[in-house]
Each structure stands twice: as C-alpha cells, then as structure tokens.
C-alpha cells in the first residue's frame, strides 16, 4: 500500500501537469478569435476600470498610447480567486457554501506547499526547535481548517444541489460524484488528523521521501489511502469542469478582457490572415463555402441571390 501511494502520487503529479499543459496548449493552438470583450475590463486604468470604461471613450483613441494596467488585471484576478467576489455579489446563498469549499482547497494547497518546504529545509529528523514547533503547529492548524472547510463546503453544496429545484435540475451525475470525492477526502483527512500524532509531520515525511525517491512507509494504511485519494483527485480535477481554476486565466484575460486592437499587434494581424485563409464548408446557400473556398474568398464576394429559404417571408 505504501509503495502504491508513492506510485499514485507520481502518476497524479504527472497527470495533473500533463492535463493542465494539454488544455492550455490546446487553447493556445486555437485560431485567433474575434474581439468579444465584456466591460469592465480590469486592465483599463483604475479610473476607467472602476466604472467599466474603455480606451474607446477617447475620440481618436488610436492616436493615443494605450497603457493596459497589468496591476489592475492581477488585482481583479487575485480578488476573485481569494474571495469568489462574483459569486458573493450575484449568488450569495451559493457563496456561503462555495466559499468555504474553495477556501478549504486553497488551505490544503498551502499546507502541502508548507510541507514540501519543511521537507526540503528541515533536518532529516523532522521539525526541531521552537521555529520547527511553530511551523508544525501551523501546518496542523492549516490542515484541520482545510478539511473542515472542505467538509462544510462540499456538504453544503451537495445539500443545495439536492434540495434547490433550480440547481437540482441542472446538476449532472458528475457534480454529485465530484462533491462526493471531496467529502470523502475531507472525512478521511479529519480521521487521520485526529488519529495520528501529527498528520502534518507525516505529510512532511511523505513529501520529503517523494521528492528524494525515498519511499519511506508511514506505517499507516489509512494515511496511504489518503495519499492515494489526494493524488488521484489531483489528476482527475483538471480534466473536469473544475479545470476552471486554471482555464479562468484564458476565459478572463484572453476572452473577457481581450480588448487589444489588431492595429497595435502584428502577431494578431498575422493570425488573422492565416484564419482568413481557412476553408469554409457551411452549407447555407448564401455562404457558398463548399469546403473549397476560403473565408477571405467567401466574405469578399457578395452572396448569390437565394433560392427560397426556410423561414423566409412567404
């Protein structure tokens, strides 16, 4: 079981990286899209971003230097990630459940990062001295809070999905399955936290061994099971709709806030000319694509006057 936990952990990390990378690369390889921004755009200057203004509020905007505020974009994403501000504003009952759930996941991630840091920096014997004890207690507290938050959030979300008709109607089997997984993880984590002398200490030892290919057994089958659960979940999450945690970068930066005019960007201009060379195969009589003509050919010509279309005025 201990060995299996290491195997699953390595596979989990690799799969996580591979899925995230393939989704990101898949997105980046997509053709350039038309501008479809939605205001407020966070990287506008602070005054404009506050009310949803754009550079197009200036007459002759193309003559002025545009200075998108990277800080504004980062700040908006940071606020959204840390507070789920959008849900807080627009769907408060859900936020009461979704926020603890997400907070729990953030805390669990922080706990893991802390454990990696400790396993790299601390002496092989573990957490010594007062600083070590402090970090140990911090890790224990973070882990406990993380599990409690995930438990509260996941059960709250599950309850809501089961009882609110509007949500129930749109909840898929995968939603229930996913929430069930997180519930299982948090329950297992809590049992371990209570049962082990130091859950965080064991986590540090495990991650240290994982990094050094040490394969030390923690001598606790339940802990091994927890590790298997955790890393399997890590591999699974990005493949589901929960992959929004990294795809949101593209959804926000590259779609919602993509206000860059083509005239400022030779790379976009190049992509547009490639896209216009793509073949069109739509069958609508007015498109006249046929699979042989390119978008450039189709849109620079006029549509032939139609044969009678369905939906046309009789």
């Amino acid at each position: 079981m201990a060995l299996l936990s290491y195997v699953v952990a390595y596979l989990g990390i690799l799969t996580f990286g591979a899925v995230v990378a393939s989704k990101c690369i898949g997105y980046l390889k997509k053709p350039v899209h038309l501008r479809w921004e939605l205001y407020p755009v966070a990287h506008e200057d602070a005054r404009r971003a506050s009310y949803g203004g754009s550079y197009m509020e200036d007459s002759g905007w193309w003559l002025k230097k545009r200075r998108p505020s990277r800080r504004g974009g980062i700040k908006a994403v940071a606020v959204e990630f840390s507070t789920l501000h959008s849900t807080f504003r627009n769907n408060r009952p859900l936020w009461y459940r979704a926020y603890p759930f997400h907070l729990g996941l953030y805390l669990l991630t922080i706990t893991m990062c802390l454990a990696v840091g400790v396993s790299v920096l601390a002496s092989p014997g573990g957490l010594d001295g007062s600083a070590g004890r402090f970090v140990g207690r911090l890790g224990q507290t973070l882990a406990l809070t993380a599990f409690l938050c995930i438990l509260a959030g996941a059960s709250g979300l599950l309850h809501r999905r089961l009882t609110v008709p509007d949500l129930k109607a749109f909840s898929t089997p995968e939603h229930f399955f996913n929430l069930g997984l997180f519930l299982g993880l948090s329950v297992l984590g809590l049992i371990l936290w209570l049962a082990m002398p130091s859950f965080f200490g064991s986590l540090c030892l495990f991650l240290g061994a994982l990094l050094t290919f040490g394969f030390i057994s923690q001598g606790n089958a339940l802990f091994d099971l927890f590790i298997i659960f955790l890393f399997a979940l890590m591999a699974y999450v990005p493949a589901t709709h929960m992959g929004h945690f990294f795809m949101k970068y593209f959804l926000w930066h590259d779609i919602r806030w993509d206000d860059q005019p083509a005239r400022d960007n030779p790379e976009t201009q190049r992509k547009i000319s490639v896209a216009l060379g793509r073949p069109v195969s739509w069958s609508g009589g007015h498109v006249e694509g046929g699979g042989a003509r390119s978008w450039a050919e189709v849109v620079t010509g006029r549509p032939a006057m139609p044969q009678k279309r369905e939906g046309a005025t009789p």
Binding site: N90, A98, L167, F170, H241, M247, I255
Partner: peptide, 17 residues
C-alpha cells in the same frame, strides 16, 4: 468564435448565477 464557444462548453459550473 471557436475558443470562446469551447470554453463555454467545458467549464460551466451550473451555479445558476
């Protein structure tokens, strides 16, 4: 619109906001 459409297909959380 492919990239916008595909992401809209894949990441809806069904939150109903």
């Amino acid at each position: 619109f492919l990239s916008i459409l595909e992401t809209s297909m894949d990441y809806c959380a069904q939150c109903n906001s």
